[in-house]
Amino acid sequence: MTDLYTRIRDQPRDALDTIAKSLNVRASEPAMQTICARYMAQIALPAGARVLEIGCGNGATTKLIMQHVRPAQLVGIDPSCVFIDMAGETFADEPGVSFAIGDAAATGQADAFFDLVIAHTVYSHLVDPEGALAEARRVLRPGGQLVIFDGDFATITVALFDGDPLQSAVGAVMRHMMHAPYIMRRLPALVTAAGFSVQSVEPHGYVQTTSPDFLLTLLSRGTSAAAHAGEIGQELVDGFAQEARRRVANGTFYGAILFLSLAARKDGR
């Protein structure tokens, strides 16, 4: 198990600062903002709705949820106390938003309390998705909604041709940044087995060419983690970064990921 997100509580402050910066970059990219606006705009909530955000991180996605979903109350949980502090500082002036330590399979929240549980790029990092789904069902009121957005990360590509060496950097990302890169392919069956009715599964293409800031940070973090694990040397890490920047500079960079959003409702009581 190499996905650093599965060990987020143990990460040093400099690593968490790097992750937080990457989360901010991703949330601010026009392409990701468009995707979030599209899938979040389809979420219809009753007046006074309560939302639980799983894996809120530093609050970067929380801003988008508040902008597009507009719940009366939002509670964000994350295993990292550092991220919880960051998010709390960001929303210090918003009384309807609060944050607490917790994880997807043990939220620490009350039974049948929320109208919506939302998890944005969380399930690809979970060791126990079945436990997370059972916990989501527990905290949702009858008829409450579950919305999961994540990447089909097995589709990540930066290759321009067969055998492109830069694609090897994606392999490092997959080994060190994604515990479950195929989870979105399995999720409809898992959600149904957990007692939900799947309402929709929507694809969202993400392509970056001229301003691939998030993809560059993802490649950098993945290759750096590979170097830290002793898989490759720093020279190769630097070489991957140099080649990626060269392609951006000359207009040949291409990076793409297929994201998916799944919406479901809690069945029964």
Results as ranks from 00 to 15, higher is better:
124 S>V: 12
207 V>A: 05
27 A>E: 06
81 C>E: 14
47 A>N: 06
214 F>G: 02
143 G>K: 12
77 I>Q: 00
166 L>S: 03
269 R>K: 08
210 T>W: 08
257 I>P: 01
98 S>H: 09
190 L>E: 06
228 H>Y: 06
98 S>C: 14
92 A>T: 03
108 G>T: 00
195 G>V: 04
206 Y>Q: 02
228 H>N: 13
107 T>A: 00
121 T>H: 08
220 S>R: 15
241 A>W: 04
67 Q>V: 01
128 D>K: 13
50 R>C: 03
149 F>G: 12
36 C>S: 14
167 Q>Y: 04
69 V>C: 10
22 S>R: 15
160 L>K: 15
253 F>G: 10
23 L>C: 09
203 P>C: 06
258 L>K: 11
123 Y>R: 09
218 L>E: 09
78 D>E: 07
145 Q>C: 11
217 T>H: 13
264 A>V: 02
78 D>K: 04
25 V>G: 06
147 V>I: 13
157 T>C: 13
83 F>Q: 07
62 T>R: 09
135 E>I: 01
254 Y>W: 08
34 T>G: 14
156 I>V: 14
177 M>P: 01
250 N>A: 10
178 M>V: 10
153 F>Y: 15
229 A>V: 02
122 V>K: 07
185 R>W: 06
133 L>E: 04
142 P>Y: 11
9 R>E: 12
269 R>E: 07
135 E>C: 06
77 I>C: 01
40 M>R: 03
16 L>I: 00
211 S>L: 13
82 V>W: 11
34 T>E: 15
265 R>K: 13
201 V>I: 13
105 A>Q: 08
248 V>Y: 07
200 S>A: 15
245 R>C: 10
144 G>C: 13
57 G>E: 09
137 R>E: 06
48 G>A: 12
260 L>A: 07
146 L>I: 05
34 T>Y: 06
110 A>F: 04
180 A>V: 01
33 Q>L: 11
138 R>K: 12
260 L>V: 02
133 L>Q: 05
56 C>S: 09
223 T>F: 08
182 Y>E: 14
83 F>R: 07
206 Y>G: 00
106 A>M: 02
211 S>Y: 06
198 V>Q: 10
200 S>Y: 01
217 T>C: 12
1 M>K: 11
20 A>P: 01
207 V>W: 00
116 L>D: 03
258 L>T: 06
69 V>F: 02
50 R>E: 07
64 L>E: 07
186 R>G: 07
86 M>I: 02
232 I>G: 04
34 T>C: 10
67 Q>A: 14
227 A>L: 08
244 A>C: 10
94 E>T: 11
59 G>Y: 04
263 A>Q: 13
203 P>N: 03
233 G>A: 07
139 V>A: 08
10 D>W: 06
222 G>H: 08
141 R>C: 12
